[in-house]
Amino acid sequence: MVAVPDMDSLVNPQQRQFNPYTENGGTILAIAGADFTVIAGDTRQSEGYSIQTRYAPKVFRLTDKAVLAVNGFAADGNMFVKKVKQRLEWYRHAHAKDMPLRAIARLIQTMLYARRFFPFYVYNILGGIEDDGTGAVYSFDPVGSYERETCRAAGAAQSLVQPFLDNQIYFKNQLAAPGMSHPTHLPLPDVLSIVIDSFTSATERHIEVGDGLEMYVVLAKGRGLGGMEAIGGVQELSERTEGERLFVVRRELKKD
C-alpha cells in the first residue's frame, strides 16, 4: 500500500538535519622534558556507551622527531593525520630533509584553519624535538589556535588530568624548599610515571578511557637512552639511529 502523507506533515514545515560529527572519547597527553618529549594516548574508541574497538591508535609517528596525538572525532582525526603525513612527504621530496617541529606546528594551524567553516572536529597535540634539541609540546584547538607548552592533556578526561599535571609538572600550589627552586623540566623516568599515573587515574574514573596505553618517547640527538633502560616492552620506531630516536612503550589499562 502506498503511504499517504497525513495533512499534518503537508501543512507544517518539516526540518531534517544531518549531523556529520560524533565524539569517540579517549584522552591524549604530552609532556616535554629538557631533551625529550613523551606523547601518550589511550587506545579505546567509543561512541556513547558502546566500545567500538579496544585498540584504535590516537598517537602517530610523523617523523623521527615529531609525533602527533589526535583526539575527538576519530574519522576526522585519522583523515587529518593522513593529510599531515602527505604534506610532510611532499616536503621531504622537495627539501631532502624532515620538516622542523615548529614548521609542522604552523602547517597544522594552516591546515586546520583552512577548514574554519567545516572544521576537523579534533584536538591535536604535537610533540617532539625542536631544531635546538629541546623537547616541545604544541597544543591546538579544532580551528588551529596553538601554543607551545611544557605539558597538555586533551580529550574526554582533560578535566581530570590537566589539574593533576598543573600540580605535578608545573608544581602549582607547591612551595619550593627554602633556597631552592622548582625544576623547569623533569627527568624521563619521573615523566613516564606521571603519564602512567594520569592514565590509570583517568581509566578509574572515566568510562571512555581505558583498554591500552601508548606512550611515544622522542629523544634528542645524541642524548643516549638515559632513563629508558628500566622500562619493559620498549619498541624503537626511528629509521636512523644517529639522529633523534623514537620509541613506543605500550601498557595495558583496565578494560571495564
Binding site: 578535566s159 590537566q162 589539574p163 593533576f164 605535578q168 594520569s198 587515574s201 583517568a202 574514573r205
Partner: peptide, 11 residues
C-alpha cells in the same frame, strides 16, 4: 568535582 576526581585519584 570532575577535576577533584582526577587529582584525588592521582594523589
Amino acid at each position: 568535582s570532575e577535576k577533584m576526581f582526577g587529582v584525588a585519584e592521582g594523589l
